[in-house]
């Protein structure tokens, strides 16, 4: 047992794992950044009640939320002319954006209607009200659920392993396999 642990700590294994960590961080970093932008857009669109934009956002959100992430990753892997790591990141981004969209919409809904009335009565446009009054208040309320979702993103990067990308979990499994470990 101790020998096995020592073997795991060998330099080339540590470096191998560090590469995995880097890939995990890259996938999750990109996913978090882009899903936040896209998700905010989707959440605002759905919240707006605009006859077209709200419907587009609703269809997008409901479709992606209903799809298992692992299925999306496989689907994107085999239908997109991208490197596996990129198609995986794209799948995760589009999936997470749907969830972020719902978090954003929930945050927007939790802002008191009186804020709109005060701002509009002062002559703010719809966009100014959204940008300066409503969205900043909504973002504060969204911090806890967003944090939770983004932690999930980091964990879910291990799904990308199924399409051949060796991130942190994947590399760990390989090392354990090489050492015939029962850990």
């Amino acid at each position: 047992m101790m020998e096995e642990l020592a073997a795991l700590a060998q330099w080339h294994n540590v470096r191998f794992m560090a590469e995995g960590l880097w890939i995990t961080l890259r996938i999750s970093g990109l996913t978090i950044a882009f899903s936040f932008i896209l998700g905010t857009l989707l959440g605002v669109m759905r919240y707006s009640g605009h006859w077209l934009l709200a419907r587009i956002a609703a269809v997008y959100i409901e479709s992606f939320r209903a799809s298992p992430l692992i299925l999306l990753i496989l689907l994107f892997r085999f239908t997109m002319p991208l490197k596996p790591v990129n198609s995986g990141t794209l799948a995760m981004t589009l999936f997470t954006a749907a969830i972020v969209g719902e978090i954003v919409r929930g945050g927007l809904n939790s802002v008191d209607k009186g804020q709109w009335e005060a701002a509009r009565s002062q002559g703010f446009t719809w966009w100014q009200t959204m940008q300066h009054i409503v969205l900043p208040q909504a973002l504060r309320k969204m911090i806890p659920p967003l944090t939770g979702q983004f932690i999930t993103v980091v964990k879910d990067t291990s799904y990308v392993w199924v399409v051949g990308v060796q991130e942190l979990t994947g590399k760990g499994v390989i090392i354990l396999g090489q050492h015939g470990s029962t850990l």
């Binding site: 009186g114 009565s121 002062q122 002559g123 208040q137």
Partner: peptide, 30 residues
């Protein structure tokens, strides 16, 4: 609306802004 101000039963101040910002936002931005 810039020349028609409204005061509400529930005040509806902007809670994420200071008192001075509440008073200056619309004059500046609008």
């Amino acid at each position: 609306r810039q020349s028609v101000a409204m005061v509400f039963q529930q005040f509806n101040l902007y809670p994420h802004k200071t008192v001075l910002e509440n008073v200056t936002m619309a004059p500046i931005l609008v």
